[in-house]
């Protein structure tokens, strides 16, 4: 059994259902500064969301731009230093969190994706699948292939830090600059 599974993974292709990229409804995302060791439903709208309030510095200044998006010139003053930071405040498990909205870098779009269970795609029609156009079996698809689909999309998320808003040197902000660097690394070089 084990070796059979291994062999399947090698030849595995996980098809992304393109139609789901178009239909994905917006989603609210929070990146918490703690590990919650569970995957599953949670009454976020009952406990977390209503407790979010503006930071002590006054009104929220609106969406900030991801670090990677600022290609030229110095950073805007509001990104400098943490003294003048405002944003959101909430408490989770009795700890104070401060956060702010972080935009998805320009040229990118965010998706939440869920892998379809094999049983679902083989048996009853899957909601992700009955999009009409995707039903035809492509020759690229094989029996042992699997499917993944976008369930939601986003253009920004709320980044939370413990006590303070994660600073400009936070790793996640660095990661958001990756796409612009990757573009340069992988761009075709000019011929001589």
């Amino acid at each position: 059994m084990e070796s059979g599974v291994d062999a399947a993974i090698k030849r595995h292709r996980v098809h992304l259902r393109s139609a789901t990229l178009r239909d994905a409804p917006p989603v609210t995302l929070h990146l918490l500064p703690c590990e919650v060791a569970v995957d599953g439903p949670a009454p976020v709208g009952r406990f977390f969301t209503p407790a979010i309030r503006q930071g002590p510095e006054g009104e929220h200044r609106g969406r900030t731009t991801a670090p990677g998006s600022r290609r030229t010139g110095p950073r805007a003053p509001h990104l400098l230093g943490s003294g003048g930071r405002c944003g959101f405040e909430v408490s989770f498990r009795g700890r104070c969190l401060r956060g702010e909205e972080v935009a998805v870098p320009p040229g990118l779009v965010g998706y939440v994706m869920v892998t379809e269970e094999k049983e679902v795609s083989m048996g009853k029609p899957d909601p992700l699948r009955d999009s009409g156009t995707d039903d035809e079996e492509s020759p690229l698809e094989r029996d042992f292939d699997r499917f993944i689909g976008a369930t939601a999309s986003f253009s920004h998320f709320t980044l939370w830090g413990l006590e303070t808003v994660p600073g400009p040197d936070a790793k996640v902000r660095g990661a958001l600059t990756w796409p612009s660097l990757a573009a340069a690394i992988h761009a075709q070089v000019p011929e001589d």
């Binding site: 098809h15 990229l21 178009r22 040229g107 939440v112 156009t133 690229l140 292939d145």
Partner: peptide, 25 residues
């Protein structure tokens, strides 16, 4: 069910209008 948070190039969304399938991991 495990949910994956992804950032992908915007043009994949537009390209998906034209193609029936063809995106795969």
């Amino acid at each position: 069910a495990r949910q994956h948070v992804f950032l992908v190039p915007e043009y994949l969304k537009d390209a998906s209008k034209k193609m029936k399938s063809g995106l795969m991991f």
